[in-house]
Design a protein around this nucleic acid. Structure first.
Length: 714
DNA sequence: CGTAGAACCATGTGG
DNA sequence: TCCACATGGTTC
């Protein structure tokens, strides 16, 4: 190693016990001492003796900096965490607020360490938790005094160190790695392309744990420790010895070492369970995609938002008054129980109608949409309520809800990679995946001019607008789940439908077939209905449920299920086969090897068992679709990264749809890339069924997510 | 007595 | 007795 070492003060060495871990039956001793070699100047600015653990880069001289960079280049792994202003870190806080980041701590694992279990093909299961020569670097990210010359150079060096770490092609282990990358991009990304994080290899133990058991949410590092202790029966060793007590930084050092060990253990488990490839090629690269995505702001029309909120508020007032008049009573329209009283106890509408479905838990008469739809010919109130709820949802969730997420005319949703058991993503603040497609029509009374009425439509997606000079481009896999089902079941009738080029829309075809009308006359509602039928039947809906869903009699529904099963026999065989496999193994797998454990699959309880059966079938299809969409995200991301010209940014993923913001001049080139990449996933995943990706862009007249049209073939 | 929080409901997204 | 979510609201 570096020659400059001899010039520095002699390293004071301290010994420390590290927990002894067990891996399955094999016991692995990882008793080593953590080195506190004084290679660099450990003195931090706030010269508390107990904190003299980190190499604070601000205290380094020129040669020491050079040595540090050299050291980083030789490292075999990094373990890192962010420190927040309140002194907590990513390892001891549930909530990570990026605004309050104080600094970054990096444990540099040196060459002397063995990291064989990380290599892709290796079956070596030994690892060590700590070794001599490990370094701890501390980078302060908070730049309080930008004008100071010293701060500037430190920031510059910190940036150099971080990007060196990310460029190393060596694993960077971090609990909640996405937040770490995001912070790096936000703090040091100024003037530097987001493409630079793409080279990094980040490992996140949280994601590993989630892949092993997707029901475990692992909300914090502490939970991960618990999980690890359970699975490996770790002997908990008291690390709270003597001088280390009350030292948060020392605790952090121990935790970083633990994190490293845990990650190695999880890596081993992933390999054993056949999840390693999925982890490395899909979930890990996706961290970077999501980090970059979260650093991109989405513009929303603030003025328009305010205006529509007011209009909707007025309309709600009108509807409320009207409802009170019709009901002959003042009541809270938002309360389902009060509405229940009015509808069934006062007006007694249930007596004039067929049986009213009851709510699941309390077994009281439901006031749901389907019920109100049934009642709307009997009394004006139900229809009014339907409109009221529609407008209310629009205002509270989409308009006002969006406004609370907004900062200076922008929103940035948070993406959760480990939030679902099926492998899909979820988003919040706002939940951009749940924003209504359908516009709502409201009548706006013009009081000034007298009795004139104006009908206007409000579309929540239209509130999202692209930047000047940019355009939204949406690419979605059409009927992805049905295509996957066709492939997995090898149902010839279904496969044929997809392979025939003349079928433009399978649900439209199905609807026309079902209703006995030509495809041209199939309306959007018919199509939606056909879609519901297919998925309901495939995933094992009972005839009662289907009947309720479609507003037909259970007898008719039962007949339809029968004819569906008759026509697509292989689909039924597929579901039976899947359930059988699940019964044998206790889990099911998606096309990319994603797992879902289903403990109740062999339960004595009929309800629990059949639920598990449906979950099993649903997972294989939905999970596989999630795999494909994630693959598309990663592949497109890497293509853009290696391209010297392309600048397209992913805005959102709505399960089967990817929404990009593209420079106007790059639309043709980029859209071709997207289509090619997504459709070629058929080959990479060896699918029988072709994948189709119609591209939609918005018209030049209205640059919003609301009005998209199909892109002309080139 | 007011309010924090869990549970429930309704509605939206996606397939 | 389709699945998976998020959100906003009421009730207890």
């Amino acid at each position: 190693m570096a020659d400059g070492e001899k010039n520095l003060a002699a390293p004071p060495k301290r010994k420390q016990e590290v927990p002894t871990y067990c891996l399955g039956k094999k016991r692995l001793l990882v008793k080593k001492h953590i080195s506190h070699e004084r290679r660099y100047n450990w003195t931090s600015r706030q010269a508390e003796p107990s904190e003299n653990v980190f190499c604070d880069i601000r205290s380094l001289g020129y040669e020491e900096k050079r040595d540090l960079i050299a050291n980083i280049k030789e490292a075999v792994a990094f373990v890192t965490t962010m420190i927040f202003l309140d002194g907590s870190s990513q390892l001891n806080s549930e909530q990570t607020l990026t605004s309050s980041v104080k600094g970054i701590v990096v444990l540099v694992k040196s060459r002397t360490d063995r990291l064989s279990s990380l290599s892709f093909s290796s079956t070596d299961s030994t690892w060590s938790a700590a070794s001599q020569g490990d370094k701890f670097i501390y980078l302060e990210t908070e730049c309080s005094s930008l004008w100071e010359q010293g701060e500037q150079t430190h920031n510059k060096f910190a940036r150099q160190v971080l990007f060196q770490i990310l460029r190393c092609k060596v694993p960077v282990i971090c609990f909640n790695a996405k937040d770490f990358l995001k912070t790096v991009l936000q703090v040091y990304g100024n003037g530097i392309s987001w493409k630079q994080v793409a080279d990094s290899i980040v490992l996140d133990p949280r994601i590993a744990a989630w892949l092993i058991n997707s029901s475990d949410t692992v909300p914090s590092f502490e939970c991960l420790l618990q999980y690890f202790e359970k699975s490996y029966s770790v002997e908990t060793v008291n690390t709270d010895t003597g001088a280390l007590r009350n030292s948060r930084h020392q605790n952090l050092v121990v935790n970083l070492q633990k994190l490293y060990t845990i990650m190695m253990g999880l890596a081993h488990d992933l390999q054993v369970q056949g999840l390693w490839k999925l982890f490395c090629t899909l979930e890990l690269p996706l961290i970077k995609v999501l980090a970059v995505m979260e650093t991109h702001k989405i513009h929303v029309d603030k003025q328009e938002l305010k205006k529509t909120s007011e209009i909707l508020g007025l309309r709600l007032k009108e509807l409320e008054e009207e409802a009170h008049q019709i009901a002959g009573e003042r009541f809270l329209l938002t309360s389902s129980s009060q509405l229940r009283e009015v509808l069934f106890e006062k007006l007694k509408l249930h007596t004039l109608c067929e049986k009213i479905p009851r709510t699941e838990r309390q077994q009281v008469a439901s006031t749901s949409e389907v019920v109100l739809s049934k009642l709307q010919d009997l009394h004006p109130l139900p229809k009014l309520m339907l409109e009221y709820r529609q407008v209310r949802k629009m205002k509270s969730t989409y308009v006002d809800g969006l406004r609370t997420c907004m900062r200076k005319g922008f929103i940035c949703p948070t993406w959760n990679q480990t939030g679902t058991v099926t492998g899909r993503l979820s988003s919040k603040h706002p939940n951009i995946q749940g924003i209504s497609k359908h516009p709502v029509r409201i009548t706006k009374k013009q009081y000034i001019k007298g009795k004139e009425e104006e009908i206007l439509t409000i579309s929540p997606r239209a509130l999202f607008v692209s930047k000047k000079g940019y355009t939204f481009l949406a690419a979605d896999f059409s009927q992805i789940e049905l295509r996957i089902l066709a492939d997995l079941s090898a149902e010839p009738e279904l496969l044929k439908l997809f392979q025939e080029p003349e079928t433009t829309d399978i649900f439209t075809s199905l609807a026309s077939q079902w209703k006995g009308i030509p495809s041209e006359q199939v309306k959007q509602t018919d199509r939606e209905q056909a879609k519901r039928i297919v998925y309901s039947v495939v995933y094992g809906a009972g005839k009662e449920r289907l009947a309720e869903c479609l507003g037909i009699t259970p007898h008719e529904a039962g007949h339809f299920i029968e004819s569906f099963m008759q026509k697509y026999k292989k689909v039924h065989e597929f579901t039976k086969k899947t359930i059988g496999q699940c019964q044998n193994k206790g889990y099911v797998v998606s096309i990319m090897g994603r797992k879902r454990l289903l403990a109740n699959i062999n339960s004595q309880d009929y309800k629990l068992r059949t639920q598990a059966e449906r979950q099993a079938v649903n997972f294989v299809v939905q999970g596989s679709a999630a795999d494909l969409c994630k693959m598309a995200m990663v592949e497109i991301f890497t293509s853009v990264v290696v391209s010297p010209t392309l600048t397209a940014r992913l805005i959102a993923q709505i399960h089967d749809e990817l929404l990009f913001e593209v420079e106007d001049s790059q639309i043709q080139e980029f859209s071709a890339l997207v289509k090619r990449t997504m459709e070629s996933l058929q080959q990479t995943t060896a699918l029988e069924v072709p994948l189709k990706v119609p591209l939609k862009v918005l018209l030049t007249t209205g640059k919003s997510w609301g009005c998209m049209t199909e892109l002309q073939e080139m």
